[in-house]
Design a protein around this nucleic acid. Structure first.
Length: 899
DNA sequence: TGCGAGCGGGG
DNA sequence: GTGTACGCTCGCA
């Protein structure tokens, strides 16, 4: 029989573990495969005292002498180790602790049992198994179960269609002023959507009230409704359970209500109860045999784009084009206890929410990439959502095992502290950002070129891997620019470089295959190449991630050191061999200024530069021509805009690219964002600073004359707690107080968004001069134009115009012409284009997160500060951390906004 | 300026 | 579960 792995776990038969694989057969049936011939084990490097201690531990079943390579640092020979086998996986941690003082090293004593099994049998999440099954009767799983003596991986890549069910609950707080309490406040509605349909139903809404309607089922009590929920769950038997923020709200809440009614929380495919766990922010809900998919967590943690907010409303508007109508929390009780129509409205709201989350997963193919990531990394689908570290480590474990290497343990607290200290003393230098030639470049085209997978290429070219690093240089080894040494591939080919090479080849093959494949296959292949890319980009960051098993500061430091060398070499190669100047560059990209105004000529030059540089650099380093900026405005490192031209094959398409320039911020009114976009647009497309200045002056005049509509001056902020609980002076709170006083029957509630404008007045406190725009309009009150000019408009506008040498006084000083010469050499272009902001494809040259470290005071910033230097005035160094960790976003500020 | 609390999403 | 993980913004000292 063959089946595709959905999930795996084990249970104890007495003291003995039985591995359980939940899988789907070709025909779409779910089965469970039992295997009881596998026992947990780990390795130790013994010392003199080891043998005696081993005899004292009764749980140890067998001790076997083996040889394995140690993983950190190059070693020529394998090390003699003892393979310790025990019976119960749960005994391993305590045996590990007991043995620790009596051993030199312990390896692989913290590999989850299910992964120990999968790796040893060459099994990968979402891939296929091949086995001869004998049907067994059991009440531990709810699907047909088979016992097998042997289990192999099957060589096939197709996917069995999955069954998805989304869940959304509505609750009613007993006290509307207090937050919800799952111990007391009942669930009143459970809404579900199904893909594929469940008994011809797309969705189903249950409610704890006598009520009937299309696909609506009413119940006398909450308990009866919950019982029906489990019946539906078991009948539909979904592989995927989804819902927006379901991990931290709906599922834990449901579980608590089940416990309240003394009902078992048995939502899965086995006898195991479902439960939620929390660490840090991340909440996870485990349902045995199924996969919990939370679109909210995916979008936040593994994003391909940045959203202004991550609520279901915003996200579905952008991803599905569908706006959802919300029911205010405060009005829910009214609807629930209201007329038939009101209840219907409430039910439709619940139905819509379940529909939207399932549509996000299905229509946006949100799971596609993760299915492929499972097949590449070996992780089970459920475990992919926790972060990149586990993906890299599981993939590496497969490869380490094949080559006779053991995997180091996850770092202990002490080891973490040691690493942190080591890092503080010797530092981990990041990438180089070339000093930009600040200002507007409008005379000739700017060519943007970047290195294809820079860090992976470096690792492959110089054989950089934890087990190729060597302390004392041997003959014929690589000496990295940071002073570390690595043996050459002839001596030992690095595991990570080899994995990366395999990934590169696989990606090339997939892309080729995509060209002549049908839509459905193409979709899968595209997901696969994205998954490969994700994995490739994870390895460098992983080696520098402090919690990594394979952390080596020399490895990470050497990679960035080669990167810094590379960009300087590239700059020199370009400037020595072409009539061009590098005006900016960051990590893996260079911006080359030419005197060309013809796009075709510029393109040709870009391609020539790319192939020349590539042929003059070592190994796998490959510079590619990326795009043309007809004009380019750079404020500081990391903050620029360009008028981009790309050839589609038939014509030139243009749009405005913006990086690091924030045009949308919560504390800015719409006028600020609009004006910023406008002047950037004018500078880039007209190449004229004066026009931009005039635009600013025009707006300032309008503002002074009170001709700017109030909605453009309104800043909106939400009430996060009740008004009494704020003690500081905040404009929106003062406005909320005023609103409450004016309309005592319907005061602002928690969660309400309060808009305000700032008025002229005697009170020097800003908050006291804030008021509701509607009230201001009705009473003809005057806005404080001085405030808007000096506090809202000028600071961001100044930062842009300063980069081209314009001072604040020139903006405020009437219509006087500036002393600046017109920097446009050619004739002014009269082309008019709307700003097109492409938020579907934020450019991410390297996936990962960055930090900016001050050279002088060591302060760290997660974003390049607006001034481009540290607040102490010190120069900022750039650090890059690959794509490990959770700080994955924060890069594409200003990419997303409404046009 | 630096630090700590609190929030995010969900009802 | 052979576990044990955030990053940002705001208010206050």
């Amino acid at each position: 029989m063959q089946a595709q792995i959905i999930d795996a776990d084990y249970f104890l038969n007495g003291n003995k573990p039985v591995i359980r694989i939940f899988a789907k057969t070709e025909s779409g049936n779910t089965i469970c495969v039992f295997y009881d011939k596998f026992l947990p084990y780990f390795f130790i490097v013994p010392t003199a005292g080891t043998a005696g201690k081993l005899k004292e531990i009764p749980e140890i079943r067998s001790v076997e002498e083996v040889e394995r390579f140690e993983p950190l640092g190059y070693s020529k020979e394998k090390t003699k180790m003892l393979k310790i086998t025990v019976t119960n996986p749960q005994d391993v941690p305590k045996i590990r602790e007991t043995l620790a003082p009596y051993t030199k090293n312990i390896y692989e004593a913290d590999i989850l049992f299910k992964y120990r099994f999968m790796v040893d049998h060459g099994l990968y999440g979402m891939k296929w198994i091949d086995f001869d099954g004998e049907r067994v009767r059991t009440n531990t799983v709810k699907v047909p179960a088979f016992r097998t003596e042997e289990i192999r991986s099957a060589d096939r890549n197709d996917n069995v269609p999955l069954r998805h069910m989304s869940v959304d609950i509505e609750c009613l707080p007993s006290d509307p002023r207090k937050p919800l309490d799952s111990k007391n406040d009942p669930i009143i509605i459970i809404s579900m959507s199904f893909a594929p349909h469940f008994r011809d139903k797309k969705n189903l809404v249950l409610l704890a009230k006598n009520f009937y309607g299309d696909d609506i089922k009413g119940f006398q009590t909450e308990k009866e409704m919950l019982e029906e929920f489990v019946r539906i769950l078991d009948a539909y038997d979904p592989d995927i359970i989804t819902g927006y923020n379901i991990n931290s709200f709906d599922l834990p809440y449901l579980a608590e209500r089940f416990r309240h009614h003394k009902m078992p929380t048995n939502f899965g495919r086995s006898e195991k109860m479902s439960f939620g766990k929390t660490f840090g922010i991340l909440q996870e809900f485990i349902i045995s045999g199924r996969v919990v998919v939370d679109p909210y967590q995916i979008l936040k943690r593994d994003p391909w784009m940045k959203f202004p907010r991550y609520d279901l409303n915003t996200v579905s508007k952008i991803l599905l084009g569908d706006e959802k109508h919300d029911v205010e929390y405060g009005k829910m009780a009214g609807l629930w206890n209201g007329t038939k129509e009101q209840i219907s409205t409430f039910l439709e709201y619940a139905r819509q929410d379940a529909n939207l989350s399932i549509r996000l997963v299905i229509e946006r193919g949100m799971l596609d990439k993760f299915v492929e990531l499972a097949k590449i990394s070996g992780l089970l689908l459920q475990d992919l959502f926790g972060g990149q570290t586990k993906r890299v480590e599981t993939m590496a474990l497969h490869e380490f095992r094949k080559r006779g290497f053991v995997m180091p343990p996850a770092p202990s607290k002490g080891e973490l502290a040691r690493r942190a200290k080591e890092r503080e003393s010797q530092g981990l230098k990041g990438a180089t950002v070339l000093e930009p030639e600040k200002g507007l470049h409008a005379e000739g085209c700017i060519l943007v070129l970047d290195f294809k997978s820079l860090y992976p290429s470096i690792m492959r070219t110089f054989n950089i891997s934890p087990e190729t690093a060597i302390k004392t240089p041997v003959e014929n080894c690589y000496a990295s620019p940071s002073g570390a040494y690595f043996v050459r591939p002839e001596t030992k080919s690095g595991i990570l470089p080899d994995i990366l090479s395999t990934l590169v080849d696989a990606r090339t093959a997939v892309k080729k295959q995509m060209k002549n494949s049908k839509p459905e296959e193409k979709r899968m292949l595209n997901a696969k190449q994205l998954a490969i890319k994700d994995m490739s980009n994870s390895f460098y960051g992983y080696t520098g991630y402090i919690r990594a098993r394979l952390y080596m500061i020399d490895v990470a430091g050497s990679i960035t050191a080669y990167g810094r060398d590379n960009i300087i070499k590239t700059k020199n190669l370009v400037e020595k061999n072409f009539p061009a100047r590098v005006v900016y560059g960051d990590t893996d990209s260079i911006f080359v200024k030419t005197d060309m105004t013809n796009l075709e000529d510029a393109k040709k030059l870009g391609e020539d530069i790319a192939s020349f540089v590539t042929s003059n650099l070592e190994g796998h380093l490959e510079l590619q021509f990326e795009k043309i900026y007809r004009t380019f405005l750079i404020l500081t490192k990391k903050r620029y805009a360009g008028w981009k031209f790309e050839h589609t094959g038939t014509e030139w398409k243009n749009s405005i690219d913006m990086k690091g320039i924030e045009t949308v911020r919560r504390d800015w009114c719409p006028l600020v964002s609009e004006l910023m976009l406008k002047i950037i647009n004018i500078m880039l497309k007209e190449g004229d600073i004066h026009l931009a200045m005039n635009e600013v002056k025009g707006i300032l005049d309008k503002l002074k004359r009170g001709e700017i509509p109030l909605e453009k001056l309104t800043v909106i902020k939400g009430l996060t707690k009740s008004i009494e609980n704020y003690d500081g002076m905040l404009p929106h709170i003062e406005v909320a107080k005023k609103l409450a006083a004016r309309n005592p029957h319907d005061p602002p509630k928690i969660g309400d968004r309060i808009g305000f404008v700032i008025l002229k007045g005697n009170n020097h406190l800003l908050s006291k001069r804030a008021d509701d725009p509607k009230y201001v309009a009705e009473n003809g009150l005057q806005i404080d134009s001085e405030y808007y000019i000096s506090s809202q408009l000028l600071p961001p506008i100044e930062r842009i115009l300063n980069s081209v040498g314009v001072e604040r006084t020139e903006l405020l000083g009437g219509g006087r012409q500036s002393r600046l010469g017109d920097i446009m050499s050619g004739a002014k272009r009269k082309m008019k284009h709307d700003i097109v902001v492409d938020y579907n494809k934020p450019e991410q040259p390297l996936a990962g997160w960055e930090e900016f470290l001050c050279k002088k005071c060591s302060k760290s910033y997660s974003r390049m500060p607006l001034r481009g230097v540290c607040e102490c005035g010190g120069q900022l160094l750039f650090g890059f951390h690959g794509s490990v960790g959770t700080r994955l976003v924060a890069k594409q500020n200003g990419i997303l906004h409404n046009q």
